[in-house]
Design a protein around this nucleic acid. Structure first.
Length: 363
DNA sequence: GTCCAGACAA
DNA sequence: TTGTCAGGAC
């Protein structure tokens, strides 16, 4: 009984996590200049095309790692050293950017627009107000809430596992299933790499069912556990590039885990909601054009050039929740959106007849 | 039948 | 770039 209570307590205590984390991050960022490890990792650091030297997380860098990852036919232990040997890094060819320096990209000769869009602060504030009720699925789930009461190493692994399980799910339908899956792993003592590594894939699959793509996720979880055991002493990788080497971890997840697991802000975690909303608002564009960005990675690169770093962590849950309830992919509820007057895309897509925001299901 | 969400393979 | 993955809502 007390065991079950403690499990529930862990899950319940997760809610406070993101608030304290965001506050800590903002405090930390306002107190310190960027160390080499927390460089803003955008391509605006490049002095010329092909110069990957400035940071560990530019979109170009990520594309290189993703290509390498895809080139691997086997998903076994990642060739971390090999990758690093191929691409020796020099630190910081460009000077570190100021948080306020929106023109930083221009300084480095990059062609993305570095102009902060007009009224972006009013829009963000308006979205914050719309989101104040915290009724979006993202407010009650999310990997940042995982393993809050665990020791740091286990908490980081829990964050990684939760990220993997929660991704690629239709949130308002499946977030209950996701939470149950994490809880089942926890209750079976499987929220650590050692146990997970020694558990049959079929068992993991049964425990995480019915989260989306459970078969592939079970397989990836086991591989990740093995890699963490063998290469990172039971911890998770601490750099963006090493995280990207893990099976099933792409740019979005890697940034999320760096932000939440390691509390190191290397970039904005851009998922489909952030990507869609930033484009609808006209906040991002393809380099040298006014066209919409074509991928979340391109959105991240463009957004990072002007959005102050204080907002980098908070913008994801803010826009994800907004995208889940009001600025939905299909039939956005422009009628109830209080910032539609600032949105160039408002009322241009077919709105739902009622124009009322979709309430997330509470399953 | 279409959509969703992110990684991956072809 | 496109299809696949899982399965429920619409």
């Amino acid at each position: 009984m007390s065991f079950l209570f403690s499990q529930n307590a862990i899950l319940l205590s997760l809610t406070a996590r993101i608030v304290s984390f965001s506050n800590r991050t903002i405090r930390k960022m306002s107190q310190t200049r960027f160390s080499s490890k927390t460089q803003i990792p955008t391509s605006n650091h490049k002095k010329n095309p092909g110069d990957e030297s400035c940071n560990g997380g530019s979109a170009a860098n990520i594309r290189v790692f993703v290509r390498k990852k895809r080139a691997k036919k086997s998903l076994e232990i990642s060739p971390k050293e090999e990758v690093k040997a191929e691409e020796p890094r020099q630190q910081q060819l460009c000077s570190p950017p100021d948080i306020e320096d929106f023109a930083y990209g221009k300084k480095c000769g990059y062609s993305y627009s570095t102009q902060a869009p007009e009224n972006w602060e009013k829009v963000l504030e308006g979205i914050r107000r719309m989101r104040s009720s915290e009724d979006a699925p993202v407010d009650s789930m999310g990997c940042e809430k995982a393993g809050n009461s665990l020791p740091p190493k286990e908490r980081r692994f829990a964050v990684l596992v939760s990220s993997l399980l929660s991704s690629q799910t239709k949130d308002h339908v499946t977030h209950g299933k996701f939470k149950c899956a994490v809880q089942r792993l926890l209750q079976n003592g499987l929220l650590n790499p050692d146990a997970l590594d020694n558990t049959e894939e079929a068992t993991i699959k049964n425990l995480i069912y019915p989260v989306g793509f459970y078969t592939r996720k079970a397989s990836n979880l086991k591989k990740i556990a093995k890699i963490c055991q063998l290469k990172y002493d039971g911890d998770i990788p601490s750099t963006l590039e090493d995280l990207l080497q893990l099976p099933g971890i792409g740019p979005k997840m890697a940034h999320l885990v760096m932000n939440v697991g390691w509390e190191i802000v290397l970039g904005i975690c851009v998922d489909t909601h952030v990507h869609r909303i930033c484009n609808r608002l006209g906040w991002v564009s393809r380099p040298g054009t006014k066209q919409k960005t074509s991928s979340p990675e391109e959105t991240r690169e463009s957004l990072q050039l002007w959005l102050p770093k204080e907002e980098w962590v908070a913008i994801n849950p803010l826009l994800v929740g907004f995208g889940q309830t009001i600025c939905t992919p299909l039939r956005p509820h422009c009628g109830t959106c209080t910032v539609s007057n600032f949105c160039p895309s408002a009322f241009k897509e077919i709105s739902s007849p009622s124009s009322t925001p979709k309430k997330p299901r509470s399953n």
